[in-house]
């Protein structure tokens, strides 16, 4: 399997404490990897560095053979907008926008005409089973439905890598499973790599591979699947 995203020798310090202490990580196209570890182990920091949201103090992150550190802030934002997808812990949709508008946002921001962006967003919402809420705002739907809309937003522009940071952290078991199934299925149909950060084994069970972080170090080195 081709490696689409990799980090080598990643170090990230906050004061004296090293959240990442020489981490090597790799994920291939279509692969679902779960990054496990207790609270404060550096999982989310790893995700932020891999996604170009945060910049490591040392080490390199490469996407599609290109180093993220060679890009400026604008270039990294462009990359995140066009080729990455994100599912945050609490969805983080824009509450003033409808679900359809929230989902169409990445397309809209990259210049897709609004009508076409909305049509694609509706198709995505239909795929995730929440089309009837397309014109509702986040305050008018349940937490699970809002999180599924966040998944739709992460996938609508057919990203090559999807990052999910504790995507079920704010959901009950049933809704959590719905969301995870949606992420994995939608990613599989698009051949997108998925990096899920979680501390819950039941979430990690959806992944093809698990890695564990403890005190900023990977204890089970990641390797590409055969």
């Amino acid at each position: 399997m081709d490696s689409v995203l990799c980090g080598r020798g990643l170090v990230r310090r906050f004061g004296e404490r090293a959240a990442l202490d020489g981490v090597d990580f790799e994920v291939g196209r279509g692969e679902v990897v779960a990054v496990m570890g207790p609270s404060g182990s550096g999982k989310s920091t790893l995700l932020m560095c891999l996604a170009g949201i945060d910049v490591p103090d040392d080490g390199v992150v490469e996407f599609d053979g290109k180093g993220l550190s060679t890009m400026n802030e604008r270039g990294r934002a462009e990359l995140r907008l066009r080729r990455f997808g994100f599912v945050f812990q609490f969805g983080e949709l824009v509450p003033e926008l409808t679900l359809a508008e929230n989902v169409s946002l990445p397309l809209w921001l990259t210049g897709t005409p609004r009508r076409r962006a909305t049509a694609l967003a509706r198709r995505m919402l239909e795929e995730l089973g929440i089309l009837e809420h397309a014109d509702h705002r986040t305050s008018e739907v349940s937490g699970g439905e809002a999180q599924r809309a966040a998944v739709a937003r992460a996938l609508v522009h057919r990203p090559e890598v999807v990052f999910a940071d504790e995507p079920t952290g704010a959901l009950d078991t049933a809704n959590g499973e719905l969301v995870l199934e949606a992420i994995v299925a939608a990613a599989a149909s698009r051949d997108a790599a998925v990096v899920i950060v979680t501390h819950e084994p039941r979430v990690a069970a959806f992944a093809q591979r698990e890695v564990t972080l403890r005190d900023g170090r990977l204890h089970e080195p990641a390797s590409l699947l055969p």
């Binding site: 995140r80 907008l81 990455f84 994100f86 983080e92 990445p106």
Partner: peptide, 16 residues
């Protein structure tokens, strides 16, 4: 701030 940070994270231009 949190909501704006999430939009920034998904790549929304800060100008927007």
């Amino acid at each position: 701030r949190r909501r704006l940070a999430s939009l920034w994270a998904v790549g929304a231009p800060s100008g927007v």
